[in-house]
Amino acid sequence: MSEHTASGGARKPPQVLLTGFPGFLGSALVERLLERGDGPIACLIQPKYRALAEKRVTELAGGDDAIRLYEGDITEPGIGLDDGTLEALESVAALYHLAAIYDLAVDPEPAEAVNVRGTEHVLDVAEALEADRFHYVSTCYVSGRYDGVFTEDHLEEGQSFNNHYERTKYEAEVAVQERLADGLSATIYRPAIVVGDSETGEADKYDGPYYLIRLLLAQPAACSIMTSLPGGADSELNVVPRDFVIDAIAHLSGREDTVGEVYQLCDPSPLSVPTVIETVGDAMGHRVVSIPGSKPLTKRLLGTLAARGWPAEPATLDYFDHPTRYACPNTQRALAGTGLECPPFESYVDALVAFVRDNPAVGDEAMS
């Protein structure tokens, strides 16, 4: 059955299907895809996020019909869409899968339902719709605690994992790579730790490195206390701003030669953990004193602080002695000559800190 606009003209069918809207990365990517003329875009949303999704649609497309919302759920077969709706989406040429639970302290069942089974359901839909391209946003941290340099060629290395988020994202990428090996035209993007915009500092969720920023801001500027872990001096904290991640995905997804490839969207020259702490302290004008401590004791302390309302998350401590270093030779080759590169953390840390100071009400709750 053909669709028509209110004026009676033919309604152009959706060309793109995207999960993860109205999330932070998903919203930015939708805006970029519309700019290059890839619409209309069908966005799968959960009913509980409809009000926020409609607000984002208005901000991105006004009264235009370029973004269409479909209520569904990736944890269900057929991503929660009925046969008629799936039939209406047969025009989709590209499917972007961003939806996931990003929560370092997530319990195993929701992580498996969304990150693993959800990805399998989206893959099934991509094949049922016979989409020309499948774009999957994974994470560098499929590495788990791999001891060494982890590149785009690595995945199944017998690694252990810091948490259920890492483990389930790893299992999800394994599923994508298996379909890719069976002939699915897919491209995989692995961002490192994503923070706010490098120009404005804008973020919609304070997790990961933001616990460090907020914990330091909650202490006196004259003396802010942090704990240094054994081995932490040799660990790197690989952070990337949202605009670089979106710029890279938008560029790489528009090229035919990226089919079948994996791209790690990481900082090729990241700072060590102690240098990140020092850099954040300098940006906020705090004198930071690092006191050596054991990991189990520090985790208990962070748990106590969190229970008392402090901005603390024990799970973040695993990244202060993380043994993995990330390299992105495939990404660097693909982006050579484009002007797209990850900016150094020092160049935008001021914007991140200023945004947190000006927006204390932003929370750390994951969309799920």
Rank of each mutant, 00 (worst) to 15 (best):
V16N: 08
V16M: 08
L17N: 03
L18S: 05
P22F: 04
L25W: 01
G26T: 08
R32N: 10
L34K: 07
R50Q: 13
K55F: 09
V57H: 06
T58C: 01
G63H: 10
Y70D: 06
Y70W: 11
G80C: 06
E87R: 15
L95A: 03
H97D: 06
A99K: 11
E112K: 12
R117P: 00
R117Q: 14
H121Q: 13
V125L: 12
A126W: 04
D132R: 14
Y141G: 05
V142R: 07
D153W: 02
N163S: 09
H164M: 03
R167S: 11
E173Y: 09
R179S: 07
L184H: 09
T187V: 15
G201F: 02
E202P: 01
L215A: 14
A218N: 11
P220Y: 05
A221I: 00
S224D: 09
T227A: 11
S228C: 01
G232A: 10
S235Q: 10
L237E: 07
V239R: 09
D243I: 02
D243S: 05
A248P: 05
A248F: 02
D257P: 10
D257W: 02
T258G: 05
Y263Q: 08
C266S: 14
L271P: 11
I277Q: 09
T279F: 00
D282R: 15
M284I: 15
M284K: 13
G285M: 07
T298W: 09
K299N: 02
L301E: 09
A315E: 15
T316G: 06
T324I: 04
R325L: 07
Y326S: 06
Y326T: 06
C328S: 15
N330M: 07
R333V: 14
A336R: 15
E346L: 00
R357S: 05
V362G: 04
A366T: 13
